Computed example of a mutant assay.
Amino acid sequence: MRHPAELVAFSGVKAGDTVMDVWPGGGYWSRLFSPIVGAKGKVYAYVPAEIAEFKSDPVKIAKAIGTEPGYGNVEGISDPLAQPPPEHMFNTFDVIWTFENYHDFHDSFMKGASVDGFNQAVFKLLKPGGYYVIVDHAAAKGQGLNHTEDLHRIDPDTVKAEVEKAGFVLDKESSVLANTSDDHSLKIFDPAVKGKTDRFMLRFKKPANAK
């Protein structure tokens, strides 16, 4: 279950915002954010270039969202994960969001993309006071990055350390998607836990006095 109402509230997305949905997949969250930001807002469905050649054609899917009735404020874009953003985009976004994908940034198919570089790019893109929201599948405490590729899980403490290293401060956590019956030992696609893994929700904030 995604608990969309609770997660949208947690994200802080509001009318008029400029939002980036990182690794949008089928576009579920991009479509939810679109009517919230409204005509004065904008949603960028961002596909890392490292996955552009996946058989599912994620770039085509992302770009198609904006052609659907009612979603004209959604724009599909694709660039390398840690490519430094152009200066004219600095301090542009109110919210940058990624759902169940942060662990994948560390995987081998990302062709060595720098997660630290990506987090630094996110910091530059966000307005002072803006939010960087990460929802992902939890690994067992202390496991760090050991199971990002085999189980598709990541230790939330590792995420906190990586993101705070880029200059963010942890603003809020939520247990809405937590599941204490998940012992973190199974791959997220295993039928025993698929759709009901223990997931963490972290909202980081770019300090108001940051540039």
Rank of each mutant, 00 (worst) to 15 (best):
D94K: 00
K127M: 10
V169C: 00
D183Y: 04
L125I: 13
P84R: 10
S108W: 10
V176P: 01
F93M: 14
N91M: 06
D182H: 00
Q120H: 14
P128V: 12
A138P: 02
E100C: 04
N101L: 06
F93D: 02
G167R: 03
V163L: 01
D182K: 00
I154Y: 05
A138S: 14
A161E: 15
V169N: 07
V163P: 01
G76H: 05
S174R: 05
D150R: 00
E162K: 01
L126I: 08
S108F: 09
L145Q: 08
D182W: 00
F90P: 08
H152E: 14
S181D: 15
K160R: 12
K111E: 15
G129E: 13
N91K: 09
S175A: 07
D182R: 00
H88D: 15
F105G: 02
T148G: 06
V133E: 04
A121F: 02
L170N: 11
V176E: 13
K111N: 15
G117N: 14
T158K: 13
G144A: 08
G129T: 11
I77R: 14
V176N: 05
D182I: 05
K172Q: 15
I96E: 01
Q83L: 13
V135L: 12
Q83G: 04
A178V: 10
A178D: 14
F109I: 10
P80V: 09
N101R: 02
F93Q: 06
T180E: 15
A138W: 07
T180G: 05
F99I: 04
A139D: 15
A121Y: 03
D104C: 03
V133W: 01
F105N: 01
I134K: 01
D116T: 15
G130I: 02
G130V: 06
P85M: 09
H152V: 04
P156E: 14
K160W: 04
H106E: 11
E87K: 07
T180S: 12
P128H: 10
G76Q: 06
N146Q: 12
Q120V: 06
Y102D: 05
G167W: 05
S114I: 03
I134Y: 03
L151C: 06
D107T: 11
D155W: 02
